[in-house]
């Protein structure tokens, strides 16, 4: 795989979330696994954020991991990852998603992205597991 073909991961999130997640990944996966680049929207216009994101993604394939499905981070991610460009956006990022990415980023995109979504969903659960009480009303 050439330099341009290496799958890059950019964590794009509000405030200090991206740096915190990237730091947590490094703590767990090891400092050598420097494959995630954190990017915050703090103090940046939409144009500036998009430009910075494009620069970090480079010319090769990449995945942008972002927090919300909408908002300034999501907008920049969507603009940089139009269909057919070998890039993807994963919304609702969490630590299980990123850890799985670090260790499996050699997989083809069409295999990797569904896998990451599954890991992310599996990582969001509760104790007790209220989801098993299907008859319970959900308030709010």
């Amino acid at each position: 795989m050439s330099e341009e073909e290496v799958l890059r991961g950019v964590v794009l999130a509000h405030g200090a979330m991206a740096r915190g997640l990237a730091d947590a990944v490094a703590k767990i996966a090891g400092p050598g696994e420097d494959v995630l680049i954190p990017l915050s929207n703090e103090g940046k216009s939409g144009e500036a954020l998009q430009e910075e994101l494009e620069g970090l993604l480079g010319k090769g394939p990449g995945i942008v991991f972002t927090d919300l499905t909408s908002g300034s981070c999501a907008l920049s991610a969507r603009r940089c990852c139009r269909p057919g460009e070998g890039r993807a956006v994963v919304f609702g990022v969490n630590l299980p998603v990123l850890l799985d990415f670090v260790f499996n980023r050699n997989l083809p995109m069409e295999e990797l992205v569904p896998r990451l979504l599954e890991k992310g969903r599996a990582g969001l659960t509760s104790l007790p597991d209220y989801t098993t009480h299907a008859d319970s009303p959900v308030s709010g």
């Binding site: 509000h14 216009s45 939409g46 919300l68 909408s70 908002g71 300034s72 907008l75």
Partner: peptide, 9 residues
């Protein structure tokens, strides 16, 4: 500058 985004919504 960000128009519709988190702070607004």
């Amino acid at each position: 500058e960000r128009l519709i985004h988190g702070q607004v919504v």
